[in-house]
Amino acid sequence: MSKQQKTASSPKGLVFAKRNYQLFLLSIAVVAVGFMLMTGTSDIYSFTKITLAPLVVVAGFALGVVAILAKPKKSGDS
């Protein structure tokens, strides 16, 4: 296989590059934080549970989409 056909940023056998996996793990953590913000029994109608937590969860899912669609940088680019 020639050098042009190999992807420099993704090891053999992996679908995405290391950065994609890091972003995806970060998105999972952000979604988890959003769900933790929704938990609890005190004051169901607080700003945190009604507004902030859903926004954090949606931001986590958006980051997951970015992680999937982000193209890996080439090894020559800095």
Rank of each mutant, 00 (worst) to 15 (best):
L25K: 00
N20Q: 09
F47G: 00
L25T: 08
P72R: 04
L23H: 07
A17T: 01
K12R: 06
D77R: 10
F47M: 11
S2C: 07
S10R: 02
F35W: 00
V65N: 13
L14C: 15
F16T: 02
V56Q: 04
L25P: 03
I68R: 14
L55A: 14
G34D: 10
G64A: 15
P11K: 14
Q4I: 03
D43F: 00
V56I: 15
A70Q: 12
L26H: 00
M1N: 10
T51R: 03
A17W: 02
K49V: 07
V30A: 07
I50H: 03
S2T: 05
V56D: 07
D43Y: 08
P54E: 05
K71A: 12
G60A: 07
L25Q: 05
V56C: 07
P11C: 08
V66K: 02
V15I: 06
T48C: 01
L23F: 13
A67E: 09
V65E: 10
G40K: 03
L37F: 14
Q5F: 10
A29R: 00
A17N: 03
T41N: 12
K6E: 11
Q4L: 13
F47C: 06
G76V: 04
V15W: 06
K49M: 04
D77E: 11
I44V: 13
L23W: 04
V65W: 01
L14Y: 15
Q4C: 08
F16C: 03
A62R: 13
K73R: 09
S75K: 09
L37G: 00
G76M: 08
Y21V: 11
Y45P: 08
L55N: 15
R19C: 02
P72Q: 08
Q22I: 14
G76L: 05
K18W: 09
L23A: 00
A62T: 15
V66R: 01
I68Q: 08
L55Q: 14
S78I: 07
N20M: 01
I28F: 05
N20T: 03
L23M: 15
L26R: 02
A32C: 11
F16D: 04
Q5M: 09
V56K: 01
G60H: 00
A8W: 12
I68N: 06
R19Q: 06
N20G: 10
